[in-house]
Design a protein around this nucleic acid. Structure first.
Lengths: 117, 117
DNA sequence: GCTCCAGATCGATCACCATCGATATACAAA
DNA sequence: TTTGTATATCGATGGTGATCGATCTGGAGC
C-alpha cells in the first residue's frame, strides 16, 4: 500500500487568484439537513402533499374510505402513500373496527417550516 | 362478455352505517400541489437542502469551487445536484470567466413555505 | 361455522435517481 | 498554440419509487 505523503490542500488555486471569499460552512447542520430532507422527500409527491393538505384541514382524523376516492388511483397505491407519510412521521393512524383513520402529527412539519421561513 | 349493469357507486356502504362525515375535498388545489411537490422533491435530498442552506445564508452568489469541498462527493455529483435545484427554479447561476456562481431565487420557496405554516 | 368488507401487504414492472469515472467545453495563462 | 483549470455533460450502474392486480388479514354480520 502506497501512502501519499504530499500535502493536497482542498483549495488548490494559483496564488493571488480567487473566485470569491471562502464560504467555510462545515457540516454544522448535517443531522438537521437529513431530518428535513426526509420530510421534504415525503412531501415531494403531489398525491402525498394533497393527502397531508386534506388531513391538515380536518383537525380530527379522517377515514381512509374518504381519502381513496379523492384520487384516481387504486386503493393499494393510496395505502402505499399513507405508509410513506406514516414512516416519515408526518401522519399517524389508528383502527376502529373495519375502518382506519389517519391524522397529522402536530409539529411534524415544524422544523422544515421554520427553516423555510 | 358480461356487462355488469348494476350500479356500483363509489361509496357502497350498508345504509345507516358510516365511518365518518364525508370529506369532499375535490382537486381544488391540484395544480398548486404539483408545483409545491416539485419544490419539496428538489429539497428532498440532504445535499441539495444543505446547498440551498448555504446559498440562503450568503445573500449574494457563491462560487461552485466553494460548494464542492463542503461535501464528500465528486464534482460531477455536486454539479448534478445544482442542476436539479436550477431546474426546479430554486437557484439560478451565472458564469464569470472560469468560475460559475449560484444564488437562490427570491420567493422560489414562498408558496411551499406559506402552505407549511 | 361461513361470508363480506376495509385496508394492508406482496410481487412484478417500469421508471427515475444518486453516484462515479471519463470526457467535453470554455476560458486563462504561458 | 499549447497547457492547465473550472465546470458541465455523458454513460453506466446499482438502488429506490410509483403503480397495479392479486392476495392476505382481521373484524362485522349472518
Amino acid at each position: 500500500m502506497v501512502i501519499d505523503l504530499e500535502l493536497t490542500p482542498k483549495t488548490k488555486r494559483p496564488p493571488g487568484v480567487a473566485c470569491c471569499e471562502p464560504v467555510v460552512y462545515p457540516d454544522v447542520e448535517r443531522g438537521q439537513a437529513v431530518r428535513m430532507a426526509a420530510i421534504a422527500k415525503a412531501l415531494g409527491d403531489p398525491v402525498r402533499l394533497q393527502l397531508v393538505d386534506v388531513l391538515r384541514k380536518h383537525a380530527g382524523k379522517v377515514c381512509v374510505c374518504e381519502l381513496v376516492p379523492l384520487f384516481e388511483l387504486s386503493q393499494p397505491t393510496v395505502s402505499h402513500h399513507l405508509k410513506v407519510l406514516r414512516q416519515a412521521g408526518i401522519v399517524g393512524s389508528e383502527r376502529e373496527g373495519l375502518w382506519a383513520y389517519y391524522y397529522v402529527i402536530p409539529d411534524a412539519l415544524k422544523e422544515l417550516s421554520e427553516w423555510l421561513s
